[in-house]
Design a binder for these strands. Structure first.
Length: 280
DNA sequence: ACTCGTGTTAGCTG
DNA sequence: TCAGCTAACACGAG
């Protein structure tokens, strides 16, 4: 599933291959993925336009579109969210090999397998040159919509400053992991990245945010930066050091103590019984 | 066979 | 207001 690093990879694929090509056809008939639009809404809004940029905040992608003709006004932004299992495929010409952007499990074989299952195609732009942009998603958790509400998202997790991160962690009694996962607080952190970040910072996931002192919040912010950088360098959040230990009988990669497991913030959570014993 | 899950969000409940 | 829970999606992995 895509978290910030995987979505950034997808953004680059879009930027490199999908811009400045006239949109000749749109398949927006999947009413779950394209909700709340009705079939044909997205198609009518995009026909004849070109995607002009590929932007990202957190896990959300959006692509501004051009005017249909030089005297016209620009079109709407095309919003894409990959959910947990979405894959973007951009082809350069009919019959060309697919250039798959991102995710699923993480290895190339899985990506390509997913990308070739046309039965899982949930949305498609066909360009005038014959190439296409397709969204493949077995579980239909992806979202495609016009003019998505990016303003509702918190600051992007990548490159967040210590002061902004402290502000994002905010106040209240939520478990710190729930706050990390709150896209309105910080945008881009998913379940695996949250576990990795908390493990790097040696903070118990259930600790209430109002029980963290400034030193701990700053440590968490540095851990987030490290986790993001590592995931980006190694090719995805699934490469995190503690991720392999998220299973029954798992042991902490640093101290070899048993890993604990529970639901925190509504999500499956694993932490080191010794180093993250903390105060729950 | 059966359970769980890299995400989001509307609708409830406390 | 805040926080937590559930359902919906539909498949692969263990």
């Amino acid at each position: 599933m895509p978290e910030l690093p995987e979505v950034e990879t997808a953004r680059r694929v879009l930027e490199d291959g999908a811009l400045h090509r006239r949109i000749a056809d749109v398949d927006d008939t999947d009413t779950f993925v394209c909700r709340p639009h009705r079939p044909g809404d997205i198609r009518r809004a995009l026909l004849g336009r070109e995607l002009t940029a590929a932007r990202r905040r957190g896990k959300s992608l959006w692509l501004p579109t051009s005017a249909v003709d030089p005297s016209g006004t620009p079109g709407p932004d095309l919003g894409l969210h990959l959910g947990m299992s979405g894959v973007i495929v951009v082809t350069t010409a009919p019959g060309d090999g697919a250039d798959a952007a991102n995710l699923v499990g993480g290895d190339t074989k899985n990506r390509q397998a997913a990308a070739t299952r046309t039965g899982w195609q949930r949305f498609r732009l066909t360009f005038q040159d014959g190439g296409r942009l397709a969204l493949i998603d077995a579980r239909r958790l992806s979202r495609v919509r016009l003019d998505p509400e990016i303003a509702a998202l918190g600051p992007d997790a990548l490159g967040i400053t210590p002061a902004v991160f402290r502000s994002a962690m905010g106040h209240g009694s939520s478990p710190v992991k729930a706050r990390l996962l709150d896209q309105a607080a910080v945008a881009g952190i998913g379940n695996l990245l949250a576990d990795e970040t908390l493990w790097l910072a040696k903070i118990n996931p259930a600790t209430r945010v109002n029980a963290l002192d400034r030193t701990e919040v700053d440590r968490l912010g540095r851990a987030l930066r490290r986790a993001l950088r590592s995931a980006t360098d190694k090719g995805g959040v699934h490469t995190g050091a503690v991720i392999a230990a998220r299973l029954p009988g798992g042991r902490c990669p640093r101290c070899h103590a048993e890993m604990r497991h529970a639901t925190v913030g509504g999500r499956s959570t694993w932490w080191c019984s010794r180093e993250q014993a903390g105060r729950p």
